[in-house]
Design a protein around this nucleic acid. Structure first.
Lengths: 100, 100
DNA sequence: TTTTTATTTCGCAAAAATACGAAATGAATA
DNA sequence: TATTCATTTCGTATTTTTGCGAAATAAAAA
């Protein structure tokens, strides 16, 4: 029984998928991909979760590399990271199309 | 503070993403999308996990609607569900391209 | 300097995910 | 009928995720 580990690509793709595996994070990325940047507080008003919970979801997306926060006192402006977003899109596309 | 729930689309997309949020499930879908069907045991030999764990991951994909199992005694043949796979592809594409 | 504002971190709890080996299942074969 | 084979389910343990409110932080405004 051979036990190879996963490829870097598989791990990376699973990582991106995990970042998108919660409805609120889908919604966050939809908001950000439309308008590029957003203030955390403005988003919070439209979401059915506590602000501290929102903060955690934003961290999740940040850890996955999909967004970045820019401190713009007293607010924090969150922006999509276009390079990672494009990479995720491309990897997902190839994954679904099977053209490796 | 308005608290709307998520759209059906957001929930569905997150559900598909969750199904793909583990490297072994990425690998499983890659195998299945290439050859359409596969016997569970054949897959197990190439994976770094116990057979019972593989079974759980297959269930996860089945629950998400991405695959189905066909009992072909004494083996079980797993096949990709092309309609759901296509739906996931399309939803993911629209999500990344922002064209709603 | 105190207060206000925006956000995160902390502390906690509940639920879900991941993993394994042992036992159960269900059908074919000896 | 007993055995074998492929796979799942069970029981269990560990880790991760999700969520909240309270407290901490950090900078601007009063």
């Amino acid at each position: 029984m051979i036990k190879p580990k996963y490829t870097e690509r598989q791990i990376k793709l699973a990582r991106y998928a995990k970042a998108l595996s919660h409805p609120v994070r889908i919604q966050l990325m939809e908001i950000l991909s439309k308008q590029s940047c957003c203030y955390s507080g403005d988003i919070a008003d439209d979401l059915p979760i506590a602000r501290s919970t929102l903060s955690q979801h934003l961290s999740e997306l940040k850890d996955a590399g999909l967004i970045q926060g820019e401190f713009n006192p007293p607010k924090i402006k969150y922006c999509i990271k276009r390079d990672a977003w494009e990479e995720a899109r491309q990897m997902m596309k190839e994954f679904f199309e099977g053209d490796k």
